[in-house]
Amino acid sequence: MIELRGLQKGFQVGEQVVQALDEVSLTISAGEYLAIMGPSGSGKSTLMNILGLLDQASAGEYLLDGVNVNQLNEAKRSQLRSEKIGFVFQSYHLVPRLTARENIELPMVLAGVPPRLRQQKLDELLEKLNLSERAQHRPSQLSGGQRQRVAIGRAIVMRPRMLLADEPTGNLDSTSGAAVTDLLESLNADGITLVLVTHDQALGARARRQINMFDGRLRAEPNG
């Protein structure tokens, strides 16, 4: 479902260009559970952002379901983001003024899903995330684990086929981190493609496929 060919990404920092991604080629098939690991600064987040259409590569090709996304205009890319991709951030990025329920609802509101359908989906989803009690709470009134579950709910509410999570447990203690991991894995078990960035070797080892990055390049996949 995803094919990257010779992807490059450079950042201009002062006079220099930092090569965050260097000739990255990768294929991800539907339903996969992939962990991306590597030292800090190796380009993991940069790769995830490009996969999630949050950023554009400097060179190379990114085919999503056979479509070269670099050739799409901004509106089309937005629609793809809405339709096909769910993104979970390390620092949640919830809207502080909205309740848990409203945060999860937001992608549907932006996509013009009619209110009646939205309410139905929200009820189901809150139940599934074990957040029904917390539906009317603001992010500031929630624990880190609950916030990340809200963020995951928001990422999957449009039923994307791919879920990208950049260190989703990075800000969590081990118990709530484990709960979040369980949730992500259960979603993957239901068929969603899961791509995960993590520093945690144990967590990475649970993925069916691991990729190691170093200095903007992919390294061999030890246990594939």
Partner: peptide
């Protein structure tokens, strides 16, 4: 928030 709205699928026009 603008970045987030776009990440959630809103177009620039929206």
């Amino acid at each position: 928030e603008i970045g987030l709205l776009k990440a959630l699928g809103a177009s620039s026009a929206l």
